[in-house]
Design a protein around this nucleic acid. Structure first.
Lengths: 150, 150
DNA sequence: AAATACAGGACTAATTCAGTCCTATTTACC
DNA sequence: GGTAAATAGGACTGAATTAGTCCTGTATTT
């Protein structure tokens, strides 16, 4: 199956959680809210921070918040933050990886068109869209509960 | 990096080879032409045949040929043939896989929009496009040689 | 000063993927 | 009719990637 990493899927869940509440949340807290193991959350949040998708505050009562509006964070951003560049084949990307079938694949533009098309598609979908889709398909019980509980 | 399987990349190479010559070729022959190991070629060709992208003829002087014109074979077809359904996340696909974070991800349409967009993007790129892109970026030495030799 | 929380990176376990091989079936040709 | 050539299907193994954990250091609040 053609799919994104598990971690990328998690990342969207985390970002949606952060987008819903507007306050700074510790990675520990986010883990509890989402049910994703805390070390894993920490790892992902670091990537998202490095990529500039979330702002971090250290120290007591620190944590993470969105760096910019959910409308301005695209799925392409998230995937790139967690997995690196969106390049459907290895040779299209960094030229330090050498294609072992060079005789027929001398870094030609074979896949360029596809890369561009997929990147464009993923740039069209924003975090805000995903939040909207979620509630459309039925508000998740768990989040609804915990949100109400506060 | 967000990318397709190596086998899918191979598959495009194989299909391009088949598209260039119009005759029926054995999987063995295709392997020699492309430099991809013959058992691997055989495996991929079986998938492509099952998916209806290539026609097969058994027995002596048998082999494979395109089932339809290169313009009508899309990258989405190839990916689906080799990797299965294009579903960016596991839970969006067959419902027999159970998401282990169900509390926050009860098979919601979170990723639907993205799946649709990516599928559309990959449907726009055809095998004919890839053949064209290849020659545009410089005719591969090897294929040029062997083609001339016959 | 002490507690809290992020930053970076090393390491291990689990999963997936790539590649090979074996047996059965079909077809061409002598 | 027999033999060789080729695909069909599937099982199996080794390699590579991914997911997950943990440790040490640094910044910040109270």
């Amino acid at each position: 199956m053609f799919k994104v990493n598990k971690l990328t899927d998690y990342a969207t869940v985390l970002l949606i959680e952060i987008a819903r509440r507007k306050v700074v949340q510790s990675s520990q807290h986010i883990a509890e809210q989402t049910g994703i193991p805390s070390p894993t959350v920490a790892k992902i949040m670091k990537s998202l921070n490095r990529a500039g998708l979330v702002a971090s505050r250290r120290g007591a009562s620190g944590g993470y918040s969105l760096e910019r509006a959910a409308e301005l964070i695209t799925l392409a951003d998230v995937i790139q933050a967690v997995e690196g560049p969106i390049a459907l084949t290895a040779c299209a990307d960094t030229s330090d990886e050498h294609c072992n079938i060079e005789s027929i694949c001398p870094v030609q533009g074979k896949w360029n068109r596809a890369n561009t098309a997929v990147r464009a598609a993923l740039t069209q979908v924003t975090l805000a869209d995903m939040v909207a889709d979620m509630t459309m398909f039925g508000v998740p019980q768990h989040v609804a509960q915990t949100t109400a509980a506060e």
